[in-house]
């Protein structure tokens, strides 16, 4: 079976800094791959190349065994790649439905925005993701961190993503909401989505991911199946930037 996504030999530099240096990772359907590393290790940059926010200096992206060209967020969406950015990327002055459908608005037969249908669809998906969500008509600036997170997640889930990128989805959440996100990841995985997950929480990653890739200073240190390594071994990869010696 061909991997859902293969990023091959990706490099990108900003000014003199080599943010991502010849990194290759892949992702299979129904799999969660975690990206670990310190701040500035290049995880978010790597993933932004896949979501179309940055363009790689060199390297290739293959999707379903075919070479893909992703030059913009629009291209990424055309490949059913959805991203939940660390910053959530919400327009704070607009309500949830406008944010959920931003760039992909539903329109009436006359070409005008169909706000009622977008509101109804938003109500439907929010009822599934976050039953406590009530403030449909208010600007998202009036929402709590968890509710804003649900809007960002709803945006990724609504459009039948096949590849989901989640950049620190639980960083700003409380215990209860973190649990909800974890359950959702498991549910989407069971539906056959491939998920790239970025987090600092190594323990959480060991629970949620099938494989983890560790980065340091823009380079890939290694990719391991979670059942083959201990949390301490992963930590030493993150901190020391080298693989644990085989068969200690």
């Amino acid at each position: 079976m061909a991997p859902l996504v293969e990023m091959r030999n990706i490099s990108i530099a900003f000014g003199g800094v080599q943010a991502v240096d010849d990194v290759s990772i892949d992702l299979y359907p129904g799999e969660v791959v975690g990206l670990l590393g310190h701040n500035g290790a290049g995880k978010s940059t790597l993933i932004k190349i896949l979501s179309g926010a940055y363009r790689a200096d060199s390297g290739e992206i293959w999707i379903d065994g075919k070479k893909a060209t992703i030059n913009s967020p629009r291209d990424a969406r055309a490949h059913n790649i959805e991203t939940i950015h660390q910053t959530l990327a919400l327009a704070d002055n607009l309500p949830a439905p406008a944010n959920l459908f931003l760039g992909r608005e539903l329109r009436t037969m006359f070409g005008f925005l169909d706000d009622s249908r977008m509101e109804a669809e938003t109500t439907k998906i929010m009822a599934r993701l976050n039953p406590n969500f009530k403030k449909i008509a208010e600007p998202v600036s009036a929402l709590s961190g968890g509710q804003r997170q649900s809007v960002a997640i709803a945006r990724a889930v609504y459009f039948n993503a096949r590849i989901l990128i989640m950049d620190e989805p639980t960083a700003a959440l409380g215990v209860h909401e973190t649990k909800m996100v974890a359950d959702l990841i498991m549910e989407l995985k069971a539906q056959g989505l491939g998920i790239f997950l970025i987090s600092h929480d190594t323990r959480e990653m060991m629970e949620l991911c099938d494989r983890v890739s560790v980065m340091k200073n823009g380079q890939l240190i290694g990719t391991e199946r979670v059942e083959d390594v201990t949390e301490d071994e992963i930590l030493s990869m993150i901190i020391l930037g080298k693989k644990a010696p085989e068969a200690v």
Binding site: T83, A91, L94, G111, L113
Partner: peptide, 21 residues
């Protein structure tokens, strides 16, 4: 219209607008 929606979205958060294509 989409044009109007994008005007307000870009004004509220230009990065979000760009990431939305």
């Amino acid at each position: 219209t989409r044009l109007g929606r994008y005007i307000f979205a870009a004004g509220g958060n230009p990065q979000a607008a760009e990431l939305s294509g």
